[in-house]
Deep mutational scan, measured.
Amino acid sequence: YETDHQDYCEVCQQGGEIILCDTCPRAYHLVCLDPELEKAPEGKWSCPHCEKE
């Protein structure tokens, strides 16, 4: 399936195990989030940028 999400972390610009925001195209490593997450959230997730909106 096709997605318009970026394939690198918004914070460190590296690829790998990233989680995708359900609201925007941004993607993040769990450890690059502040506060960092230990595991990917279940269900819908909005990144810090979208949470501020």
Rank of each mutant, 00 (worst) to 15 (best):
L30A: 12
Q14Y: 10
C50V: 02
D34P: 07
Q13S: 13
D34I: 04
T3R: 13
C24G: 00
P48H: 02
Y28N: 06
H29T: 00
G16A: 09
P41L: 07
K39M: 14
I18W: 10
I19N: 13
Y8R: 14
E36L: 08
G43K: 12
K39N: 12
Y28M: 07
K39L: 10
S46E: 10
V11A: 12
R26L: 13
E42T: 10
D4W: 10
C21H: 01
L33P: 05
D7I: 04
E38Y: 07
L37D: 09
E2I: 15
T23Y: 06
K44S: 07
K39A: 08
V31I: 05
S46D: 06
D34T: 06
Y8P: 15
C12N: 04
V11Q: 05
C9V: 00
C21A: 02
C9W: 00
C47S: 02
Q13G: 14
P35Q: 09
S46R: 07
L30P: 03
L33V: 09
I18F: 09
D34E: 15
W45L: 06
C32E: 02
K52L: 05
E36G: 10
Q13I: 05
E51K: 11
V31T: 10
I18S: 12
D22E: 08
G16H: 15
L33D: 02
Q13Y: 06
C47D: 12
E36N: 06
A27Q: 14
V31M: 03
A27H: 08
P48N: 10
Y1A: 15
H5E: 11
D4Y: 03
H5T: 13
E17G: 09
E10R: 11
Q13K: 05
G43Y: 04
K52H: 14
T23D: 08
Q6C: 06
L37R: 13
R26F: 05
W45G: 08
C47R: 00
E17F: 05
G16T: 15
C32I: 01
G43L: 08
G16L: 14
K44M: 13
D22Q: 05
Q14V: 07
E38H: 05
D22M: 06
G15D: 06
K39W: 05
E17N: 14
E2K: 15
E42N: 07
I19W: 12
P41Q: 02
Q6D: 06
L20H: 14
E2S: 15
C21R: 00
C32V: 02
Y8S: 10
G43V: 11
